[in-house]
Design a protein around this nucleic acid. Structure first.
Length: 455
RNA sequence: GGUCCGAUGGCAGAAUGGUGAUGCAGCGGACUGCAAAUCCGCGUAUGUGGGUUCGAUUCCCGCUCGGACCUCCA
């Protein structure tokens, strides 16, 4: 028995420091993570999945390294896009957000993303938002103007530190009409007035609704405190969303540090361009699952490092499917024991800023060994798959999923072909094989008999 | 216009200041009635021009090209 694998140190890329840093939890007994969740007005697309999957892998790894992890991912259920979509659909906001949230959960479950420990909704945290706004006003970090409450970026010397830009850049680069009531072009809304057709809550500043950024400050504080370990999201959130969140939180809770480490994943591309709703070049999760196994989609998203852009193609989905074929073939050839351990080759790759491509290369080495009959390797492959959220099916389920023919019919035809082969009637044997292939069933003659799988 | 990131074989994609993983595809072979699966073997790459260095794909500068953010966005 080999000694227990030593635990490699976890290193993560911190956007704020723009460097790989050793991960040092504030409390090693309780690691706390916040991720920005979806605005629930439409089906998720595969690009949206990338941040969710990165968080999933991070949390799976953290749970292996630390005794307790609290992972919070919010649901944004108040937003002008939601209001507009509900109106366009002639449905209530509540119906739209409830349905979209359920769809979101189903899509994530399909690709094996574990739910967060807490999934607070923005509309359940209005009071916390108002509390933060009140404090920001009291400390001179915010001001009222024409029914709005705005954050004053110049009141916070650290503004721009996270995203690496200063307020002068923002003025120079402003491509949008600056509202005349803003003191500084970079100021952003904390609270805005609602008319009768818009959702609203009573507040000291009149009936209104929150700005976009304040909800995350409120929920992160409520559930994780003034200081916590990791805050993540897509790199398109770095500015302005995360910059503004950070500014609000640090000004409201100056004794805290807000997030210690900022994690940002790169975008998914389609034909070299960012996949996005506004460009219309997106595939929903359901579009993709109609064309390939969910597990292959999960694997595909791990073939590239989370900080590299990944060009999404259906060819890539097919490649991922073939890779899983080989992994499952290895598990089928040499069944794993239940007590396998994750080899150091996999752990060290993941601990190196979630280097999934390197981890997958290690899985290939394990699969090679398992195919050669190495039970230790097979068990390690299975255990590594469990850590990565892969290889949870039986090989039989994987190889036979989606076959329309019933097994009895297939077995009968296999027997008939076997008889033909014994009689050396290969024309008939090949005819049967071709007929099965036409219906998506592939045959493999092995030393122990003829096996079938989806073709 | 401002800020930032990237460019590795046909494709995907790691790594590294000193002979460039891994997978897919391709080619040859073994096995097979033929296939499939599996196994063995093979080929092909660091965008471009400089600089630092004994040595650069790696570090620095310019250029070209691509992408992201500056507006809702994972």
């Amino acid at each position: 028995m080999s000694p227990p694998a030593s635990t490699p140190a976890l290193t993560l890329h911190d956007s704020q420091r723009r460097a790989l840093v050793p991960f040092a939890p504030l409390d090693p007994n309780h690691v706390r993570v916040y991720y920005c969740g979806p605005t629930v007005y439409d089906l998720a697309h595969v690009g949206n999945l990338r941040a969710m999957l990165t968080a999933d892998l991070l949390v799976r790894l953290l749970r292996r390294l630390y005794p307790r992890v609290t992972f919070v991912r919010n649901i944004t259920d108040v937003d002008d896009k939601i209001t507009a979509r509900a109106r366009a659909n002639s449905e209530t906001i509540a119906a739209l957000t409830a349905r979209t949230t359920a769809d979101f959960h189903a899509d994530l479950a399909a690709i094996g993303i574990v739910p967060p420990d807490l999934e607070p909704r923005a509309t359940d945290n209005i009071a916390e938002m108002q509390d933060i706004i009140t404090r920001l006003l009291a400390h001179g970090h915010a001001y009222e103007a024409e029914g709005h409450v705005l954050f004053a970026v110049q009141s916070f010397p650290g503004y721009g530190t996270l995203s690496g830009r200063d307020t002068d850049d923002l003025i120079a680069g402003a491509r949008v009409e600056v509202a005349p009531y803003k003191r500084n072009p970079g100021d952003f809304v904390l609270w805005k007035p609602s008319d009768d057709t818009q959702p609203g809550w009573d507040s000291p500043w009149g009936r209104g609704r929150p700005g976009w950024h304040i909800e995350c400050s409120a929920m992160a504080h409520r559930y994780l405190g003034e200081s916590f370990d990791i805050h993540g999201g897509g790199d398109d959130l770095l500015f302005p969303h995360h910059e503004n969140e950070r500014a609000q939180s640090l000004c409201c809770f100056p004794n805290g540090t807000f997030a210690n480490v900022w994690l940002h994943n790169a975008m998914l591309l389609v034909d070299g361009e960012k996949m996005s709703k506004s460009l219309g070049n997106f595939y929903t999760v359901r579009d993709v699952l109609a064309r390939g196994p969910a597990e292959a989609l999960r694997l595909l998203l791990m073939t590239s490092h989370y900080r590299s852009t990944l060009n999404f193609t259906f060819g890539g989905l097919e490649d991922a499917t073939r890779t899983l074929d080989r992994f499952y073939r290895a598990l089928e050839t040499t069944p794993p024991r239940a007590d396998g351990i994750v080899p150091d080759s996999v752990m060290s790759a993941l601990c190196d800023d979630l280097n999934t491509p390197r981890a997958l290369a290690a899985l290939h080495a394990l699969a090679d060994a398992a195919l050669a009959g190495d039970s230790e390797a097979s068990s390690g492959l299975k255990a590594s798959g469990a850590l990565l959220g892969l290889l949870d099916q039986t090989p039989a389920d994987w190889f036979r999923a989606g076959v329309g023919l019933d097994e009895t019919t297939i077995a009968t035809l296999i027997e008939e072909r076997l008889a033909a082969r014994k009689a050396r009637d290969f024309a008939r044997a090949d005819e049967i094989r071709a007929a099965l292939a036409a219906q998506g069933v592939a045959l493999e003659d092995t030393a122990t008999g003829t096996q079938w799988r989806r073709g």
